[in-house]
């Protein structure tokens, strides 16, 4: 099909092409509109929103909501927590992914048992209560560690990475070993540098997962100042109950601020980091999915 489309000129468009163009554009707008709406609401005053609900752009844009958001101690602490968890957590997860993938390449005694143990965790888990009680027994509740330590590596990524590692030519490893390189040396000097694109892909997945994590923050951390940004955001959205339209928190400044605007500004700053990197790194994001499907 691709070869056909390349050959045909724009002037040979027929009705089908026009319809396809319109339908795909419409779908794109449906995806984009909620983001645009979020941005709009965050930039207007309540008065303007009531006056012109169907506005396409704000007439008197204001950054009050953003000013409020960046002054809010909870959002600032949430960002700090999420940043730490994202950086440390991604390294933590990558460490397990790389070490297990590398070990599984080798035919060591016990490999089968270890792999079965790994695969079983994909299908079955202890679930909410046993995990919660474990965190309590380990004294991890209300610490940053509880947001990092329990989330290890994704088994799918380990298996995909193992396949990438196995594509590294055996001769390279052998010659490095003959030059006196240890197992660990081979991993760092030969295999990892040759697998950078896939490492980038899985690293991105882990980072996005960490940034988006809200459940562990809600479950294990009662001290709101230690909660990650998504958990804080959830509190802002749920407490200021969309349905009732109550004000966020008890800050007196809130009287002058449009509550819905603050909520949308909080949403927007939370997705901004992902929004900024996604268009440039889309290639890496996508390749992780197709790699799993194309190789067999």
């Amino acid at each position: 099909m691709a070869s056909l489309s390349r050959k045909s000129k724009l002037n040979s468009w027929n009705y089908a092409d026009v319809i396809i163009f319109i339908v795909l554009t419409l779908f794109g707008l449906i995806i984009l509109y909620p983001f645009y709406n979020t941005l709009l609401i965050s930039l207007v005053t309540e008065g303007e929103y009531i006056r012109r609900p169907f506005m396409l752009w704000p007439e008197e844009p204001t950054l009050r909501a953003y000013w409020y958001v960046f002054k809010s101690p909870l959002i600032v602490s949430g960002f700090r927590t999420s940043l730490i968890v994202t950086v440390v957590g991604t390294i933590y997860s990558m460490f397990f992914t790389v070490s297990i993938a590398y070990a599984l390449m080798k035919n060591f005694p016990g490999r089968g048992i270890f792999k079965a143990m790994l695969l079983f965790t994909m299908y079955f888990a202890g679930g909410l209560i046993p995990t919660y009680l474990l965190m309590k027994d380990l004294k991890l509740l209300d610490t940053l560690w509880v947001l990092i330590l329990p989330t290890g590596a994704t088994v799918n990524y380990i298996i995909l990475l193992q396949r990438f590692f196995e594509e590294v030519p055996l001769e390279l490893e052998e010659s490095a070993k003959l030059d006196g390189c240890s197992e660990v040396g081979v991993l760092f000097k030969i295999i990892l540098p040759l697998s950078l694109p896939s490492l980038a892909t899985f690293g991105l997945y882990y980072a996005v997962g960490r940034w988006n994590a809200w459940y562990d923050g809600m479950l294990y951390i009662k001290d709101v100042e230690k909660q990650p940004i998504q958990t804080v955001l959830r509190t802002i959205i749920q407490n200021a109950a969309a349905v009732q339209g109550e004000a966020v928190g008890t800050d007196t400044d809130m009287d002058k601020v449009y509550a819905e605007g603050v909520k949308m500004a909080s949403v927007f700053v939370t997705i901004l980091p992902i929004m900024c990197v996604y268009p440039f790194l889309q290639r890496y994001f996508v390749s992780g999915l197709t790699a799993g499907a194309v190789k067999s």
Binding site: F27, I31, L32, P34, F35, N212, Q230, A242, K263, V267
Partner: peptide, 23 residues
């Protein structure tokens, strides 16, 4: 278009719920 279509996959449901409530 594909960049736009695939983007929401990388958002948390906290964020999507917030946008939905508003709409």
């Amino acid at each position: 278009l594909q960049t736009i279509y695939t983007f929401p996959h990388f958002l948390s449901w906290v964020v999507v719920a917030g946008m939905c409530f508003n709409l």
